[in-house]
Design a protein around this nucleic acid. Structure first.
Length: 868
RNA sequence: GCGGGCGUGGCGGAAUUGGUAGACGCAGCGGACUUAAAAUCCGCGGGCCCUAGCGCCGUGGGGGUUCAAGUCCCCCCGCCCGCACCA
């Protein structure tokens, strides 16, 4: 046998990548009548370099894309760039690079990295969201959304960074300070654009039930986020301390109208108009409002804040008992943004109300009581009785509702409120409208002009896109669009008067809320070519990180609905199946002085870990998500350089199921690299054996066993890929390679013709089944095996049914549930025969020990259990 | 607090509908080859025991259902994630 050459991934991979590109293997076919499969991974932000999370994400998608292609599907597997966002502006401020330059350079670099990983992406459909050619459609759709009543402009409180002169997202406020400037963040009221996602609250909630191939976890998170609750809205009559009627009645929302007879106070939000009114004339109320506002910024403060309130000189008249007047408070735990910003307090049956009542010495009147407790014994201590669904509860102290269950009482109370004409049944949602205005440069300009005469005017569609000016500066705080000398000064398209452009840009989440649809027709004159979308949409498999469980995925579902209602799309649910992959994690390292050390600088010696350069002792810390701050980052480019793309792909698919976190280890990668070499040697070896093209001669037992192993592995791997269980598929492939190695060894240098055939057949099947995971190695092996043409274009093999059938099966024999022997029987052997054979076993006889056999359970193909 | 998930060797993880627990990989140990090393190949590998067996125990803990439980039911413990004053 000639000495096999080491497989050299670097040259080989480049060669096949070029071949694939020339053959256009990844190009989705237009106008095809084949069934389609749209596999999409969340597109990356072009931060500069790809990271291991990308490698995992895109490898998962690529395996599926290649597999589906081989299965005969017309596969759409596109890639683009989520290219607007803050880091580009930060780079501009830090390094003086223009955001556009920075972004497009990053894209070019990362595209090269993705290509070197061998992902079969249809690059002809590529776009970046910062291309005017992309965002002009976003602007056009926004105008259509306006016409459809899905856009609103209103004042809203924002986090304002006084140093950077910009609005911050909640996530960018850390302990009340701006994450970049460190300045104390202020609440400011600004005019903002909103998309009315609440219009679809019910539909977004209901739609979740249809998404069978979404993780339950994500659906639950979205359900909670939408936060539907059923209850009643009604109004209190208010009177002042002189018993004079207050001009405006006070609306409140409650989910517990059944507990109305237990009400002992009414509370409004510190931001409520009533509170504000009293704050104007009463300094104590004003102080209280300020105190609450100050507390509002830090999340921890909210968590631990004590229930606090201040009396307002008002009383609320109980709707069912006109002679009862409830004191009105402004209270810190009542949110202006939910419901009506006002509540009635029923201390006996709500924990917050109870805490509040104990503090201010308000009555606690139980109105719900367990059936078996006498009403006069029903007392509330420090814990409110909040249950209302239990059937063993009855209403007490509630006049005409006494004796009803809380459930019945809810209905009765609502009916009464309706009869009195002061309230009705209402459904409330936690979901708020989506504020999309950002005071930033590097985003999609909002296509609006403010005219002193005409007010808000839409930019006419023929004037789109409103493009970003490129001659901007980043040397001052604030929005560069705001201070640009000319950009914002325009004539009103309606009356021609001097007017100003909207200088806010869109939240970048808008960009990613419809890109999946654009990929169907990336160069269309319309946002989406409906004919194309009708073929390609929905995305059959969407893959990405769990961190987008709510925002991106909910916004996308909203956008699809809004697009449908404005004629830009034909369906409501863009992603038929969702897969959320786990993170790539790595051990962390620190020196004894506490400095983080990157893995590349850690040297493993017999007596511990040491810093490669300084020689310091290094301590291994917990395994955590790769992050720059902890320096536990492995650069994919270095891995590809050292081991090749296939090794990286193989390792990241091995061991851990894709939905779980995977630990990146040097040893693991080495193992994957060894496997690549082993496979190559084996294929090279088998390729040099002359094998018959057909097998008409007698097949011996060894050859048959190998054939069966290969075909079974194929069947298993096919199932596993189909179910995205790539770690299992890989285990099956390892098993086949082990079996082949054994057969090879047994057969020696000159195998008989039946074995030669079996080896070659196994080799070909092996190569074809790992091809989606290690496509370069597969092509090289395919060629070595004498094939012409690309494996990437070959169909998926099918196992021969005859070889999947087993003639005999091994069955365990248990006595009283304990395994005592194993028998081999014909697969279709009758139960009686199996039973007889089992009882004949020596070990079984010993275990039975002459005791009478009470029962024998035979599960054909699985087990025999003898009960004595 | 509410909701979701998880708990299996030294580690990552397999295990069909309840049917031989620990597939496969990593690390480890032993051996072959070699002057030596690397590479490669082969083998071993849950725990316990002065009883080494035809033994006993074993999937976070306790109980239950069953001929049979990692898997189903009840209770408890621990960990991870999400939401959190939502009336």
């Amino acid at each position: 046998m000639n000495k096999p050459q080491r497989y050299a991934p670097k040259d080989v991979e480049r060669k096949w990548q070029r071949a694939w590109e020339e053959a256009g293997i990844a190009k989705a076919e237009e106008g095809s009548d084949r069934p389609k499969f749209y596999v999409l991974e969340m597109f990356p932000y072009p931060s500069g370099r790809i990271h291991m999370g990308h490698v995992r994400n895109y490898t998962l998608g690529d395996v599926l894309a290649r597999y589906k292609r081989a299965q005969g599907f017309n596969v759409l597997h596109p890639m683009g760039w989520d290219a607007f966002g803050m880091p580009a502006e930060n780079a501009a401020m830090d390094k003086g690079v223009h955001p556009k330059t920075w972004t497009y350079e990053n894209i070019a670099h990362m595209k090269g990295q993705l290509k070197r990983l061998g992902f079969s992406l249809d690059w002809s459909r590529e776009f970046a969201t910062c291309d005017p050619e992309y965002y002009r459609h976003e602007q056009a759709m926004f105008l259509d959304f306006m016409d459809a009543g899905l856009v609103e402009r209103k004042k809203s409180l924002v986090n304002w960074d006084p140093v950077d002169q910009t609005v911050l997202a909640n996530e960018q406020v850390i302990d009340g300070r701006g994450w970049r400037s460190g300045a104390l963040v202020e609440k400011r009221e600004l005019d903002q654009w909103f998309l009315k996602i609440t219009h679809y609250a019910e539909d977004l909630l209901k739609g979740l039930d249809e998404l069978e191939n979404w993780p339950e976890k994500v659906k639950v998170m979205q359900r909670n986020w939408i936060g539907r609750s059923e209850g009643a809205r009604f109004t209190f009559r208010l009177v002042d301390e002189q018993d004079r009627e207050w001009p405006e009645p006070l609306p409140v929302f409650t989910t517990r109208p059944d507990t109305l007879f237990g009400a002992s106070f009414v509370a409004v939000s510190p931001d409520h108009p009533i509170t504000k009114k009293f704050a104007e004339e009463n300094p104590e109320v004003a102080a209280f409002v300020r105190e609450c506002a100050a507390l509002g910024t830090s999340e921890e403060a909210i968590e631990k804040a004590e229930k606090k309130g201040i009396r307002l000189p008002l009383y609320a008249v109980h709707p069912f008992k006109p002679d009862v007047k409830l004191p009105v408070y402004a209270a810190n735990f009542v949110l202006m943004t939910y419901g009506e910003g006002a509540i009635f307090g029923c201390p006996a049956h709500d924990q917050r109300d109870l805490d509040f009542a104990r503090k201010y010495d308000l009555p606690v009147i139980p109105v719900v009581c367990p059936k078996d407790t006498p009403p006069d014994k029903c007392e509330i201590g420090d814990e409110a009785l909040t249950d209302s669904e239990r059937d063993d509860l009855v209403m007490i102290n509630s006049e005409w509702m006494n004796g009803l269950t809380p459930k019945q009482a809810k209905e009765a109370a609502i009916a009464k409120l309706e009869e009195l004409g002061i309230g009705e049944r209402q459904v409330n949602y936690r979901l708020r409208d989506w504020g999309v205005s950002r005071q930033r440069y590097w985003g999609c300009p909002i296509p609006i002009i403010h005219c002193p005469e005409c007010g808000v005017v839409k930019v006419p569609k023929q004037d789109l896109p409103v493009t970003l000016p490129e001659d901007v500066t980043f040397d001052a705080a604030g929005n560069p669009l705001e201070r640009h000398p000319t950009w914002k000064h325009v004539k009103c398209p309606q009356c021609g008067a001097d007017a100003t452009r909207e200088t806010d840009t869109f939240d970048t989440f808008i960009d990613s809320s419809w890109y999946y649809a654009r990929f169907c027709s990336p160069r269309a004159e319309e946002p989406v070519d409906l004919d194309k979308a009708k073929y390609w949409m929905p995305v059959d498999q969407y893959i990405g990180g769990i961190e987008h469980a709510i925002l991106h995925l909910l916004y996308s579902r909203f956008f699809a609905r809004a697009m449908k209602d404005t004629g830009h799309l034909h369906l409501k649910e863009p992603f038929a199946a969702l897969f959320t992959q786990g993170m790539v994690v790595h051990e962390t390292y620190k020196t004894e002085s506490g400095a983080w050390v990157e893995p590349a600088l850690v040297e493993r010696r017999a007596d511990g870990l040491f810093h490669r350069e300084t020689g310091e002792k290094v301590i291994a810390g917990p395994v955590e998500k790769m992050s720059k701050s902890k320096k536990n980052v492995i650069d994919p480019e270095a891995i590809v350089e050292k081991y090749g793309a296939d090794t990286a792909r193989w390792f990241i698919l091995s061991d851990s199921p894709p939905e779980r976190d995977i630990e990146w280890t040097e040893a693991g990668v080495e193992g994957a690299a060894r496997f690549v070499q082993r496979v190559w040697r084996m294929i090279d070896d088998i390729a040099s054996i002359a094998a018959p093209a057909d097998i008409s001669a007698e097949v011996g037992p060894d050859a048959l066993a190998l054939r069966q192993a290969a075909h079974r592995a194929l069947a298993e791997v096919t199932k596993d890929i189909e179910g995205l269980r790539f770690n299992r598929a890989i285990a099956r492939i390892h098993e086949l390679v082990n079996a082949m190695g054994e057969a090879q060894r047994k057969a020696g240098d000159a195998p008989a013709s039946d074995m030669a055939f079996a080896l070659r057949e196994a080799a070909e099947l092996l190569v074809r089944m790992f091809a989606p995971m290690m496509p370069h190695l597969a092509e090289e092996c395919w060629q070595r095996l004498g094939h012409e043409g690309l494996l990437a274009q070959a169909p998926w093999p099918e196992p021969e049914p005859a070889l999947l059938k087993q003639d005999t099966v091994k069955m365990a024999v248990q006595v009283n549930g304990k395994r005592r022997a194993e028998i081999e029987v014909a697969k279709d052997a009758p139960k009686e025969e199996i039973e007889k054979l089992a009882l004949e076993q020596e070990a079984v006889q010993r275990a039975v020990g002459g005791k009478p056999v009470r029962r024998v359970i035979v599960v054909p193909g699985r087990i025999v259990n003898i009960v004595v």
